[in-house]
Design a protein around this nucleic acid. Structure first.
Lengths: 336, 336
DNA sequence: ATCAAATAGGTAACCGGTTACCTACGGGTA
DNA sequence: TACCCGTAGGTAACCGGTTACCTATTTGAT
């Protein structure tokens, strides 16, 4: 493969001159020399070696996307928006699938530090209570090594982040069901551990503020997949006093609940209202279509990327941006 | 950031020794020296510089995934399987979203050559007839620069690839509809241009081999999204002699057809049979659930990665692997 | 006692660029 | 004539590792 040395030799100039021409430096260069060098580079099918460039410059023009999965609309939409922004700015993204394992996150982060990525966009896994400590260690490790970070979906001190006010979204979801007259409202939470769950707190607060008493039997936790929604749906509906509405913290599980209701011959929305979280093509396609709390995913992805790029450009500083979720009314909820 | 020079100085040894210890070389090292070096590396929170390593070794342990989109179950499933295999082998993947633009593919490929990726997994865009020439140029450019390639979804000479026998799948889909007694069978093709479409040829062959005459009015082309399926569905169904069955070359468009039928109060499968291509969570969730020709996506992803890894390891050679699609019967087809 | 082999480590060129600093020359000006 | 400045280009250190080749000591066998 051709190098600037080859070009320099052929053109009878130094590598400095070649480098200047090839990088459009402001250093004055004779037009003839420039032309000769460009022609030779072209003839040799020269491709600059980014590795060598990175070693010399200390920048890799690479950022890493650390996300829990890509087989999921939610992350896919965010990731696509991110890749888009980053690519426009001349960066290429590493795809790092953490599979919701903090251990994998740590492994990846060490690898990424070694690779000297310029920045990291990170959706940290927070399933077990002790995960939070590891998250902080991972973030600290990145920061110590001078790597820019933007987190999303989580909240940490002293780093840029973009999140959605899930408390508000969950409060709105619950309030919406209450406003439709529901009093026994089931809740299917995600993986986040107990009291640290924003959505759970919002659900409870909304009930309390409406004077509805909170029944532990109506609160369950699932693993975010459809099957888990199905099983938890059956569990909630198969009780002595089943709920008339269920608030589910993600889409796939909400669809699982619809399937459970159908299986039990419970009509939605006539006999059961279901509200989901996140919007995706699924919630529009399913019948009845799902009423959901929508998170602005593309916006999250684009903003996360821009925060990172601003930081890398020296413009912009660390900031935390919180976006608002919104209620999307479709067919799966009705008055009691 | 600590370097091996720092460690060498502190330990009073040369960088060669540090490098040997840190890389588990077979060169003999005194246990005390080894221990001292490891301890110092740890104390300095040393992270090896992969950039420098790559420059010296000529390998980056990086491969690129060049795919048309990630906001699509099809590529997402393949990409997840790929990332998995590659990561197990110590590689990190670049996520390159080509957005079905050959120009972007070319841009990416030049960037990837500059970055000296070890390999590329590539799903080339083939929409316009002239795209094929560009594809070949791109592939040639990669090969000239010593970058391993695996293509999927397309067929080229002299490179490894994994594909699905879409002709067979389409033939099977059409034959299945014929076996249910259908004689007027609509066809909604994808972006691939006219006669180069395997699935179109298979559809026509299956009809001819059953003595059914081919009606151009029943063949249309869509842009792979749901809306396009909806519009094409309406178009086919709003004719003087509408089809009693429709074969659609992807999932989203098939779902669009279901919506169109519903909108026109045409019962599926009683009055209209619909068969899709690709399997995804959507086809299971939709009602009626879609009968489809399933492509083994995870398998494709895993095999593509393994072909590439084998090539990079020097084991294994260029080979073309064709996987078989299979019919998954669900609710959207019935006898005429 | 001699010498080959094993052990432990060092030297420095190399990977392919970037860039601070230096040289050389011609023209304009006081 | 002396000096300054702009133009054009070169020199070589540097980024952080790897590794072929070399040296020096110790061990074991003959």
């Amino acid at each position: 493969m051709a190098t600037i040395y080859d070009i320099a030799k052929i053109c009878n100039v130094s590598t400095a001159t070649v480098s200047r021409v090839l990088n459009g430096s402001t250093h004055p260069i004779h037009p003839d020399t420039r032309a000769k060098i460009l022609k030779t580079a072209n003839k040799l099918n020269y491709h600059p070696n980014s590795i060598a460039k990175s070693l010399a410059s200390g920048r890799t023009q690479t950022i890493a996307l650390l996300i829990p999965t890509i087989a999921n609309d939610y992350y896919t939409q965010i990731a696509e928006a991110m890749e888009n922004e980053l690519n426009d700015a001349g960066y290429i993204a590493y795809l790092c699938n953490t599979k919701r394992s903090v251990l994998r996150e740590t492994e990846y982060i060490n690898n990424l530090i070694a690779r000297r990525v310029d920045g990291v966009i990170f959706s940290p896994t927070r399933i077990k209570p002790e995960d939070n400590i590891k998250n902080l260690e991972n973030i600290e490790e990145l920061r110590e090594n001078g790597i820019a970070i933007v987190a999303f979906g989580s909240r940490f001190k002293d780093i840029s982040q973009v999140s959605v006010n899930t408390y508000k979204g969950a409060y709105e979801a619950t309030s919406y069901l209450i406003s439709l007259g529901h009093r026994r409202i089931g809740f299917i939470d995600g993986l986040t551990a107990g009291t640290r769950s924003n959505r759970r707190r919002a659900y409870i607060d909304a009930l309390k503020n409406s004077g509805i008493n909170v029944d532990d039997a109506l609160m369950v936790r699932g693993s975010l997949d459809m099957d888990s929604g199905y099983k938890n749906g059956l569990k909630l509906l198969n009780t002595a006093r089943p709920p008339t509405a269920i608030f589910v913290v993600n889409n796939l599980m909400a669809i699982g609940v619809l399937k459970a209701a159908k299986n039990m011959n419970i009509k939605v929305p006539e006999k059961l209202s279901v509200i989901g979280f996140d919007d995706s093509i699924l919630s529009r396609l399913i019948e009845p279509s799902l009423t959901v709390i929508r998170q602005p995913l593309e916006e999250m992805g684009a903003i996360a990327s821009r925060l990172l790029l601003d930081e890398l450009n020296g413009t912009g500083k660390i900031q935390s941006i919180e976006l608002e979720p919104s209620l999307v009314e479709r067919e799966s909820c009705s008055e009691v």
